[in-house]
Simulated assay, not measured.
Amino acid sequence: MVHIVEFSPVFAEAADERYHHVNGIWNAREQTERLARERGHAYVRPEDGGVTVEFADRALLEADALILAPTVATAAGMWQPADGAAAGRVLGHRVLDRIAAARPDLHIVLVSHFLVGHGVAHRNAKPNTWSLRALEAHLRAGPNPWTILRPTWLSTIHDPSYQTRLTGDRHADGLVSTDSVAATVLTAIEHREAAAGRTAAIFNLSIPETGATDLVAEFTALERDFEAELAGVTE
């Protein structure tokens, strides 16, 4: 059993100094929690809204892994930060620096977005693209083992005959189901030795195949990030 904590900080609320972060809603959270519990893992998510430092510290004390899935969605609706890059940097200092000081061993799986790889000048990029880019960089520069996942365009419809693929190509595009995102996130947590130090876009192969996707093999086939090689991150 793995003890998993999920934080989904809202970029627009990054500067709210009353809280450790303000928890929002990310697209695959229900599928990820359901699958985690089906696999026998413990799963903790704070209530939507302000998360106190005390709650965050307690939740992370015995955690084996953190799913960090920043969002622009709250229970009250969608919010876009005025300055995306600044919001990502604030979350990096407020959330990641505190974790690094208390739990430098904690595996952090950051659910980012494929447009980060396409660059901030991409016509579809939005302020939260800059936020995620800044947060990715902050995570790679810290002591925690990390896995950065960049889902492509999301679909709530899951076709089990479609295969899930991971790629280090920063220009990746495609469509991926929320169920496939959940499975990939949990595989990264369950097989840290294969996933740590890697960044990958997630997409579904649109040609049906037989058999199940070997996500561990997909992770193993990825090249590790430059920062991971430099720091000797192996697990």
Rank of each mutant, 00 (worst) to 15 (best):
M1N: 14
M1P: 15
V2N: 10
H3M: 10
V5I: 07
P9A: 05
P9W: 01
F11C: 03
A15G: 14
N23Q: 15
G24I: 04
I25F: 02
W26C: 01
A28W: 10
R29V: 09
Q31F: 12
Q31H: 06
Q31C: 04
E38W: 04
R39M: 09
R39V: 07
H41E: 06
A42E: 15
A42F: 10
Y43L: 04
R45L: 03
R45S: 03
P46L: 04
V51E: 03
V53L: 07
V53K: 11
A59G: 02
L60T: 05
L61T: 14
D64C: 06
L68N: 00
V72M: 12
A73R: 09
T74C: 03
A75Y: 03
A76P: 01
M78R: 08
W79T: 14
Q80D: 08
P81F: 03
L91C: 00
D97L: 12
R98H: 14
I99C: 02
A100G: 11
A101V: 09
A102H: 07
P104T: 04
L110M: 06
V116A: 07
G119I: 06
P127A: 02
P127V: 02
N128D: 15
T129E: 08
L132E: 10
L132T: 05
L132S: 08
A137Y: 00
A137T: 12
H138Q: 11
L139D: 05
N144S: 10
N144R: 08
T147N: 05
I148C: 05
L149G: 05
R150E: 11
P151Q: 04
P151R: 00
I157K: 10
T164K: 00
R165C: 02
G168S: 14
H171E: 15
G174Y: 03
A182C: 07
A182P: 06
A183H: 03
A188C: 09
E190L: 12
E193L: 11
A194E: 08
T199M: 08
T199I: 11
I207R: 13
E209Y: 07
T210W: 13
T213I: 04
D214V: 10
F219N: 06
A221Q: 13
D225V: 12
A231S: 10
G232Y: 08
V233E: 15
T234Q: 08
T234W: 04
